[in-house]
Amino acid sequence: MKRPSFARWPCSIARTVDLLGDSWTPLVLREAFYGIRRFDEFQLELGIARNTLSDRLRKLVEEGLLQRQRYEDEPPRHEYVLTEKGHEIYGVLAAMSRWGDRWLADEDGPPITMRHDPCGHDTYAEVVCAHCHEPLKSEDVSRRMGPGYPERLKTHPSVLRRFSSS
């Protein structure tokens, strides 16, 4: 059964899930952040089926998170390099890692520690308000329709309920 597409939903979470919402895509991106660039290296590190890896890399290139660059002419071979858009998804993966460290780690603690090289300290992702820099907590955040919310949906009863309760 094919999963539904959320790519056109008026919700950035749904659209991001559409891109990252399978088991392999976040792991392919994780490996790209670890410096993996070549198809065979991704395949070896992840143990992923070649056809699945081809599909995920193709999608990440189409979406502009990776760029395919030729590194050999005979036979033609390519590597996959993070783009600016790809680099910006790091915060999403770091936030997922932080949540997993808190709620899913064994008694021994997190399996991986992040070190912020500029200051030399171990760290973790924290989502903060862009203006006051206080941590974002669900109980402190309300949502409003943004400028990109589809006009045709603004008066739908379920939409009105969702935004009037915030």
Rank of each mutant, 00 (worst) to 15 (best):
Y71D: 09
R77F: 04
Y71G: 14
H78A: 10
Y71N: 09
V81C: 08
S54L: 09
D55V: 08
P76K: 10
L60W: 04
R68N: 02
R58I: 00
L66C: 05
T83R: 04
L65I: 04
E84Q: 14
G86F: 00
L66I: 05
K85W: 06
I89R: 07
E74F: 04
L82K: 06
A94F: 09
E63D: 13
D73V: 15
Y90W: 15
L82F: 03
R77A: 08
L60K: 01
P75Q: 14
I89M: 10
L93C: 11
R58V: 04
A94E: 15
I89F: 09
R56M: 05
G64Q: 07
Y71P: 04
G64R: 00
V61I: 07
K59C: 03
E79G: 11
I89P: 02
Q67A: 12
E74Q: 07
R56E: 01
L93F: 03
K85H: 08
R58Q: 08
P76V: 04
L93R: 07
H78L: 13
L66G: 07
R58N: 04
E62A: 05
R70Q: 14
R70T: 14
K59H: 08
E63L: 01
V92A: 05
E72H: 10
H78R: 03
R68I: 11
A94T: 03
L66V: 01
V92D: 03
G64F: 04
L57Q: 01
H87C: 02
E84M: 10
V92Y: 05
H87W: 09
L53T: 01
I89T: 10
E79P: 02
L53Y: 04
R70H: 09
K59V: 15
G91H: 13
V61E: 07
E63H: 10
E63C: 07
E63M: 06
Q69C: 12
